Simulated assay, not measured.
Amino acid sequence: MRALPVRRATAVVTATVVLGGLPTLAAADAPAASATSASASQHAHPGPVRAVPLQGAVNVRDLGGHRTSDGRRVRYGQVFRGDALGRLADADLAALSALDLRTVVDFRTPEEVARDGADRLPGGLVPTARPVADLGLYATTTTAIASKDPVRQRELLGGGKAERLMRDIYRAFVTDEAGRRQFAATARDIAHGKGAPLLFHCTSGKDRTGWMGYLLLRAVGVPSRTAERDYLLSNAYRAEADRKVREGLKQGGFMENPELLVPLQEVRADYLGAALNQVRKDYGTFHAYLTEGLGLDARTLARLRARLVR
């Protein structure tokens, strides 16, 4: 996978920043991130996490392996989480084929898909589009980068604005009815066995995908601290790719201070906490969010646990 030179990036200043995304627009003259990023992170976090090293994506991993509060374990090979799949190499397609996927759920918005391209998948697989809105994250970040103006970029992203936007996005995972429907439909696909093995993804595989992974783990009895650690692992898997994005933006003259993007590139306990605080405000308990907010009845939750936990 070859990165776009920065001097060509002006023509594509549409970055990959939507919720769960970051500006890959200026991957600059630095080489694109490859499977080495994921594999290196896998060695850094041996535990139960099984990465799926790919050349065209850096944050694809099995959701299995985590222990539940009653000492059981989430099954491997049933649910996978990932980042955008539009730039997969031929070898990546072979790796995905080996997972025997039946369903790929894409949380990206139509704007993201139009910009970055549809998923490239093994033969016979067609992505299921379940877009979740970004509350203007894409537009704000694109405007900031395209301006090449340090003052304007600080106005849009500095002074805690980027962090506040991310917290708003996470609260919307709970409050936005359309988004809740997309998350719930994905959980039902898994519970009823029609779509598993299943992979869900967004652009960077960290926010929409991170929340979906978190809620699934909690739904089947994984303790909150363990589910949070899985969510936070995106920082390790994405670190090198995101560093190259910032480096490319600076070298290409797009940003004097690309560190302004770090709050958008990272996952943080504070962001997850914003969603969980909203859960408590609106529903009282996480279980009530699952049953009332997502409409997952007791039978569906039991099926989900039976399918995912051994």
Rank of each mutant, 00 (worst) to 15 (best):
P258A: 15
L25F: 11
A91I: 09
V174S: 08
V18H: 07
D62P: 03
T226H: 09
V279W: 11
Y283S: 14
V222G: 01
A118Q: 15
G65K: 07
L260M: 03
D149W: 05
D282Q: 13
L217Y: 02
G56C: 03
L93N: 09
P5I: 06
V105Q: 15
P110H: 11
T109Q: 14
T203H: 10
E259A: 15
D242Y: 01
A9V: 11
D90N: 06
F80A: 09
A146G: 11
L304D: 01
R243P: 08
A57Y: 14
R102S: 13
A33N: 02
M255C: 09
R188T: 13
A33G: 07
P23E: 05
E266N: 10
T142S: 14
M212W: 02
G158W: 07
T10E: 10
V126P: 00
Y237D: 08
L199C: 13
A33S: 00
D92F: 00
E292V: 10
D83Y: 02
M212D: 09
Y289E: 05
L19H: 12
E240Y: 12
V60F: 02
A114Y: 02
V18Q: 08
E111F: 07
T24I: 15
A139I: 10
A3D: 10
Y271E: 05
A133K: 12
V279I: 15
R225S: 08
D149Q: 03
Q182S: 13
V13R: 08
A84P: 09
L276R: 06
G65S: 14
S34E: 04
A274L: 10
S147A: 09
A227F: 04
R8N: 11
L308I: 10
T140R: 12
S34C: 04
A275S: 11
P223K: 02
A184I: 01
G160T: 08
L249D: 04
P263Q: 01
A44M: 08
G273Y: 06
K194I: 05
V18K: 12
T36F: 05
H201N: 14
D100A: 11
A94Q: 15
E240C: 02
D168G: 08
T143Y: 01
Y231S: 00
A236M: 02
G221D: 10
A239K: 01
V174A: 07
G248W: 03
H43W: 09
T209H: 05
A28M: 13
A118K: 13
V220G: 03
V262L: 10
P150I: 09
A187I: 14
R299M: 06
G21C: 12
P263C: 09
T16Y: 07
R75L: 14
A51D: 03
T226D: 11
R81V: 12
L156E: 15
T285G: 07
L260T: 03
A91M: 06
G136C: 15
T68H: 01
A139N: 08
L85P: 07
A184P: 03
V113Y: 11
A118T: 13
R7P: 00
M166N: 11
